[in-house]
Computed example of a mutant assay.
Amino acid sequence: MPDLIAPTTRMHTAWLEARDDGGPGVHEDGFGLRPSDEVDSPAGFVAWVTRLAEDSDPAKATEGGRVRCTYRWIVDGDRVLGGMALRHEFSDLGHIGYGIRPSARRRGLATWALGRMLGEAQELGLDRVLIICAIDNIASAKTIERNGGILEGVRDTEHGPARRYWFEIGALGS
């Protein structure tokens, strides 16, 4: 049974396996990984997980102009299956970003996890949530639509055309 957990250093090896499942890169959707993050060494991984925790801490998250963000990992036992990021303020990237490792796709994990993160957005008091996905990412569009996202339209971004979906959080119910 999957679970959403806060990032933890105890899952270093499992996280690396998830990253390597799709091939490493500087953009791991939902994980908050930056090009400057070094996650292969234990010390680098600890530093990264510490930053992720600080990003969600209201007292520390706004230092240096950072956007407050809650990160969750989708796990099943000792396996990391994906990542979710919930930005607490509006961003050109949208409020929620996510990714599922290739070997765990097509099981409904993203739909389930997105529903949970929308619940966290509601707990934070967000009224509306924006989620953006590449125009050709049909799986992500279906995930968003299954959770009630309303298509605003398509806009050009630095990564190409993207669909923009809005959620009215108050309309989600309890």
Rank of each mutant, 00 (worst) to 15 (best):
D57V: 05
V46R: 14
V67F: 07
G44P: 07
G44N: 07
E38L: 13
V46W: 00
V67N: 11
R66H: 13
A47K: 12
P58I: 09
L52D: 03
P58Y: 04
R66N: 14
V39W: 08
W73F: 10
T62L: 12
G65A: 08
V39S: 10
W48N: 05
R72D: 07
D37T: 06
R68K: 14
A53S: 11
A61H: 09
R51I: 02
R66E: 10
C69H: 04
D57M: 05
A43Q: 14
T70G: 08
R51D: 13
Y71Q: 14
R66G: 13
V75M: 00
A43G: 03
A61Y: 06
V67P: 01
G77V: 00
T50I: 01
P58N: 07
A59E: 15
L52V: 03
G64C: 09
A59K: 14
T50P: 01
Y71S: 12
L52T: 03
F45I: 08
G44L: 11
D57E: 12
S41R: 11
V39P: 02
G77D: 01
D37C: 09
L52N: 04
C69A: 13
S56E: 15
V39K: 04
P42I: 03
V39R: 11
G65Q: 06
L52H: 03
A59Q: 15
R66A: 14
S56W: 01
W73N: 05
G44M: 10
G64Q: 09
G77H: 00
K60Q: 15
T70F: 08
D37Q: 07
I74N: 00
S41Q: 08
E63T: 11
A53I: 03
A53R: 09
T62E: 14
